[in-house]
């Protein structure tokens, strides 16, 4: 009873205020409410759109082959099975590949971000001749598609030779094609996947740190290196975490560089690309059937994709703040 009274008085107060504001309050409230409703549906729809492929992959990955062609089954499998996971992990050699991918992604990310931090700091805080030119080179690195130069880089590593030293000693050029060294070398030189972007972002961040802080450190007797390590690096933690996570994730899913420069080491990204062919040959050679159907290949590919991205999803769940919140809240000026 008192509730209704309170509501009633609030409603009448609302109309009173509305009358005083000459209908503006009602208009504004209606506008606000409709805006919120529209925003809710818009966001809900878009979120569903982004999540839907993952959800449907999950449901498909638990289906048996005959479920795929059953018109009655859309999302919930009738014959629940985990065979798809067993097959996919067998084709990808999951355990070993996962370990390989983890080690490679981690080391590459650490190396790349370490180097990019040095370079970004150099560009942000020091004045030196030809600075503009070198920074234009960084932009160039961002803009040039790596595919343009991949041809000659490929040959470069196939017949690797620094100043003809190799030829002098062993008589022929070293073939680095089948090892992981090329990509580590490239990462050390800031030429890995999207490294130009990391340099750019890190530089933008360091540029915004006030000059007084740096000068105070110098006055207190810190050298250049010590200022960098003790004053600047702790400040830059959010941006470095973001860049590190991006680097790790992009390296994890990268197919291009892995195929070209990481030799024959088995990585999830490269294994995923050939999982369909593996299934076909498995069906024809081991099971002696007519080969895999399109639907079944896609089912296995979906399962494989899920298995590749699940570690990343877990990482994202835990480090979501590091990924985006810190980056989008840091307010980097471009």
């Amino acid at each position: 009873m008192t509730d209704r009274k309170a509501t009633g008085s609030r409603v009448s107060a609302f109309w009173e205020r509305n009358r005083k504001s000459e209908g503006y309050l009602l208009k504004k409230t209606m506008y606000d409410v409709s805006f919120r409703v529209i925003r809710f549906f818009l966001l809900f729809g878009m979120c569903f759109m982004i999540l839907q492929p993952i959800l449907s992959k999950i449901s498909v990955s638990f289906m048996e082959e005959k479920d795929l062609y059953d018109a009655m089954i859309i999302s919930i499998p009738k014959n629940f099975t985990t065979d798809n996971y067993k097959l996919a992990s067998q084709f990808m050699d999951y355990g070993k590949t996962l370990l390989n991918t983890f080690v490679v992604s981690l080391t590459i990310a650490v190396l790349q971000i370490g180097m990019c931090t040095l370079v970004g700091y150099g560009f942000a805080r020091f004045d030196f001749p030809l600075k503009k030119l070198w920074f234009a080179c960084v932009i160039l690195v961002i803009v040039i598609p790596p595919q343009t130069i991949s041809t000659s880089l490929y040959l470069h590593f196939r017949y690797f030779d620094v100043l003809g030293l190799g030829k002098l000693i062993t008589g022929e050029a070293i073939n680095l094609r089948s090892s992981v060294i090329p990509y580590y070398l490239m990462s050390a030189g800031c030429m890995g996947l999207k490294n130009g972007l990391y340099i750019f972002m890190i530089r933008q961040f360091f540029r915004n740190i006030s000059k007084e802080l740096e000068e105070a450190a110098y006055v207190d007797g810190c050298g250049t290196l010590k200022t960098f390590l003790r004053i600047m690096l702790p400040d830059a933690k959010p941006i470095l975490t973001s860049c590190f996570l991006f680097s790790f994730v992009w390296q994890w899913t990268d197919g291009f560089y892995s195929k070209m420069f990481l030799g024959n080491i088995r990585l999830l990204a490269t294994q995923l690309a050939i999982i369909g062919d593996r299934l076909s040959s498995y069906m024809t050679n081991t099971l002696k059937t007519a080969g895999a159907s399109v639907g079944y290949i896609n089912c296995i590919v979906s399962t494989g994709t899920l298995m590749v991205i699940v570690p990343l999803l877990i990482l994202y769940l835990f480090a979501q703040k590091g990924f985006v919140e810190s980056l989008s809240n840091s307010g980097i000026k471009m």
Binding site: V119, L140, V141, I149, T151, L185, M186, G189
Partner: peptide, 29 residues
């Protein structure tokens, strides 16, 4: 001058990488 040298030391990895893995392959390709 000292700062300029320090600056160059900081961006040295980039310069080396750029020359070896970008400029040379670019001209070559």
């Amino acid at each position: 001058k000292r700062k300029a040298i320090a600056g160059y030391l900081f961006i040295a990895p980039f310069i080396a990488g750029f020359l070896v893995f970008m400029v040379k392959p670019m001209f070559q390709s």
